[in-house]
């Protein structure tokens, strides 16, 4: 599976920084390597995000969430996209909704956290329409 191979590749990269100037340690020894690493990371990351957006098989998405959930906690943006895409297909999956809301509350800022609390409430109430709408608002 292409997306899985790319996620594995991404997870294997040590010392990931998305700010070019933050590749300090590598820059000290080798500026071209730090630059190339930065662009490699950026391109790989956005490629994975786009593949997630294009993925239309919820089984694949669920498999990726289950398999990489823990390792992807270090990369919350990727796991958030996986959940969002998966929940767009499985709009009444209470367990995944709740896991997603908890993830947002733990890793994201106050604004997203507040929405995640709302989402959690809607899911408790099985108000799937409101849950789906709130999900779209969480970035």
């Amino acid at each position: 599976m292409i997306i899985e191979s790319l996620i594995q590749e991404y997870l294997g990269i040590p010392n990931k920084f998305f700010d070019k100037s933050s590749q300090f340690d590598l820059s000290k020894n080798n500026r071209p390597a730090a630059e190339a690493k930065y662009w490699y990371l950026q391109n790989l990351y956005s490629y994975i995000l786009d593949l997630i957006k294009e993925e239309n098989n919820s089984t694949t998405l669920e498999y990726l969430i289950k398999k990489y959930e823990k390792s992807l906690y270090k990369e919350p943006d990727l796991i958030v996209h996986l959940y969002k895409k998966y929940l767009a297909f499985e709009q009444t999956n209470e367990l995944y909704y709740k896991k997603f809301a908890e993830l947002i509350i733990v890793y994201k800022g106050t604004s997203a956290g507040t929405k995640a609390h709302e989402l959690y409430k809607f899911v408790q109430e099985h108000n799937w329409k409101a849950a789906a709408d709130t999900l779209k608002l969480i970035d």
Partner: peptide, 22 residues
């Protein structure tokens, strides 16, 4: 992954540059 996708090819190029430089 032997993809013909240009974006993937670009990723491989950057990876190679990163590797060689390192």
């Amino acid at each position: 992954l032997q993809l013909s996708d240009n974006r993937y090819k670009k990723i491989l190029e950057y990876r190679e540059a990163y590797y060689k430089s390192l």
